[in-house]
Simulated scan of single mutants.
Amino acid sequence: MKTIRSWPLAGLLIALGAQADGLVTPAIDGVVAAGTAIVLIKEDFKGTEGPIALPDGSVAFTEGQANRITRIAADNSVSSYLENSGGANGLAFNSAGELIAVVTAKPGIAVLAPAGKERVLVDQYEGTALNRPNDLVVDKKGGVYFTDPGARPEAGKPASKTAVYYLPPKGALKQLATDIERPNGIQLSPDEKTLYVANTFGDHVLAYDIKKDGSVGARRNFAKLDGVTQNDIGGITSGADGLAVDAKGRLYVASAAGVQVFDSKGAALGTIALPKAPQNLAFAGEGKKTLYVVGRGAAYRIAVLTPGFAGRVK
């Protein structure tokens, strides 16, 4: 499928095609109505990660293999948002409107835009280089929580160290957790009292109570994931990846099973299955009433009943 750049009708045609193929949602109370179209926007992207809402309501996500950040407009047209992204993965904006990203070309957290403001925020912890940071979320103080799952483990080889970190607005990087098999997506509850971490090599999304200084309390299991299977290194995998929250504090998890939705207490509400396993997701569009889901080179959009949380870009 060719990239659509400026023809508004093309988005409608794609949406009609997706509906004709029978891609629809189940009923999930307060989340989606039964039979809501799952609209295929485009396939064959060169990587699909890190979606966030842009100030104009459109959505941006990272194409890591193309070293690019890509924008999807309201009419489903696709264009380049930022080239030479440093291998960006997770994205966020701070209160100053600066685009912050996890970068992988030289692993770290960096400001990518606006032009002239580019800088590295952190690339090491206590003198040791970070392994391969993956996802991030910015709190209302301007602090950055991020995961570092390291390189993907291989059978017979030592696993790289994994960690979850917090970079406060001022001061040194804090290491919050080192006992998660593969920390991946990361998100805050709307009230910023809870930190969620997706453990790809586990069967639960994890949660931590957040302290006043940004550090966290003890790890606990928050939400039990479906679709857990054996991985190729002798353990288990849920495929848990990106996380997002809506205005009611529900947690949306991109996983091997699809988009799994949980209430604010961790109870399972339902799953939206997709043709390809999703990697990440974000609310965007007018009023943040559209859920954008990306993964395995494809991007989809789904109209939702409850908008995304308005207090952050994701």
Rank of each mutant, 00 (worst) to 15 (best):
K248N: 15
E286S: 14
G297R: 13
A244L: 05
A303M: 10
G285A: 11
I272E: 01
L251H: 09
V293L: 09
V261D: 01
I272H: 01
L281G: 04
L274C: 10
V253L: 08
A247C: 09
V259E: 02
N231E: 02
D263H: 10
Q260P: 04
R296F: 13
D232M: 05
A268P: 11
T271P: 07
A268I: 07
T290Y: 07
A273S: 15
R296E: 15
S238H: 01
N280K: 07
L281K: 04
T271N: 13
A273F: 08
A277L: 05
G242T: 04
P278E: 09
I233H: 00
K289E: 13
G234P: 00
K289V: 06
R301L: 13
G285W: 03
A244M: 04
K265L: 14
K276D: 14
G297N: 13
E286D: 15
L251A: 11
G239C: 04
Q230L: 13
A277K: 15
K265E: 15
G242V: 02
G239F: 00
G270A: 09
I236A: 00
A282I: 10
K288N: 13
Y292R: 08
D263T: 09
A273Q: 14
P278Y: 08
A284G: 08
A254T: 07
V259A: 06
D241Q: 04
Y252L: 14
G234V: 00
G239Y: 00
D246W: 03
Q260W: 05
A247D: 14
T237E: 11
V294E: 12
Y252W: 14
V253E: 02
G235R: 03
V293C: 08
G295Q: 10
I302H: 04
R301P: 09
I233K: 01
E286Y: 09
P278A: 10
Y252N: 07
A254C: 07
N231T: 01
L291W: 05
A267H: 15
F283R: 03
A256Y: 12
T290A: 12
T237V: 07
G234W: 00
G285C: 10
V294Y: 13
I272S: 00
L269C: 10
D241T: 03
S255Y: 07
A257Q: 14
A303W: 06
S255L: 07
A303G: 13
R250H: 15
V253I: 13
I272P: 00
V293D: 04
L243W: 01
D232P: 00
L291N: 03
G270C: 12
K265W: 08
A303V: 12
A282E: 04
I236Y: 00
V259K: 01
K265C: 08
G287W: 11
I272G: 00
V259L: 10
F262L: 09
G270Q: 06
V294R: 06
L269M: 14
Q260E: 15
A257G: 08
V293E: 06
L274T: 13
A282M: 08
D263G: 12
A303T: 15
T290R: 12
A244K: 01
S264G: 06
V293P: 03
G266V: 13
R250C: 08
